[in-house]
Design a protein around this nucleic acid. Structure first.
Lengths: 127, 127
DNA sequence: CTGAATCCTTCAGGATACTG
DNA sequence: CAGTATCCTGAAGGATTCAG
């Protein structure tokens, strides 16, 4: 959350369920991981390859966060070499489905947004 | 987006509509503003009071971003003192509705997540 | 009232090397 | 293979001041 260096009591803002979801899904990678794991159980290295651009460190941190929130299960197979599989929990599958709605919105309005931006930008460019 | 200081071409990851939405709604405040404005046209100072904890700077920056993306309209009333009203566009209303789905998810699983966390945490506490 | 500008702190996240 | 441990940078965001 991070509220800077001051320490005002922050009277409101909490108890907001939207913030709750977003905090869970925030960051550059959480969703990518969720999507990659949606296909079925997936291994660490597979994730590293599938979620393009992610660093090993960020992958680990995000996996831990998602696991902690009960969105991912981590299964260690005591073989050698080690094999660890991550899978979505039912709760996470629901989330994944709901995110689909957002994707729908994004796809429907993608071009409208691009247009709005262009308009806004060259309205200011015309100073 | 910020990809750190390296400059790898980043072959994939883009064209992802989820990232598109999230980028638009990301940050601590965008959603709060959207929600506050969902009630109807709202003035700068009202937003400052409604979105608890936001700084004037962040409010301005986020308003500009949302306006640029075509999610908010900004209407200046040439009175004195100046009066500026912000309102959601139809596109933003749709988004607001869709976000409701996420809120639903959050509310349904809020306690499950809390439980998962507690379990995870004291599983490690028991080293 | 509605901002824009400046300065400063915190933190997410990248690179890399090392371990069981 | 599946991580952990360091170190470092850029961006987000808070405080404050100035201006139309």
């Amino acid at each position: 959350m991070s509220r800077g260096h001051t320490d005002v009591p922050e009277p409101v803002t909490e108890a907001c369920p939207i913030t709750e979801v977003l905090d869970r899904v925030a960051g550059k990678w959480s969703i990518g991981i969720l999507v990659a794991a949606a296909q079925g159980p997936i291994r660490f290295t597979e994730l590293e390859r599938t979620v393009k651009g992610i660093s090993r460190r960020m992958l680990t941190l995000n996996l831990r966060k998602l696991e902690r929130d009960g969105l991912l299960t981590r299964t260690v197979h005591p073989t050698v070499p080690p094999k660890v599989e991550y899978a979505l929990t039912p709760m996470a599958r629901e989330l994944h489905a709901t995110l689909g709605e957002l994707v729908g919105w994004a796809e429907r309005h993608r071009s409208a947004i691009a247009t709005a931006r262009a308009a806004y930008d060259d309205a200011r460019a015309a100073d």
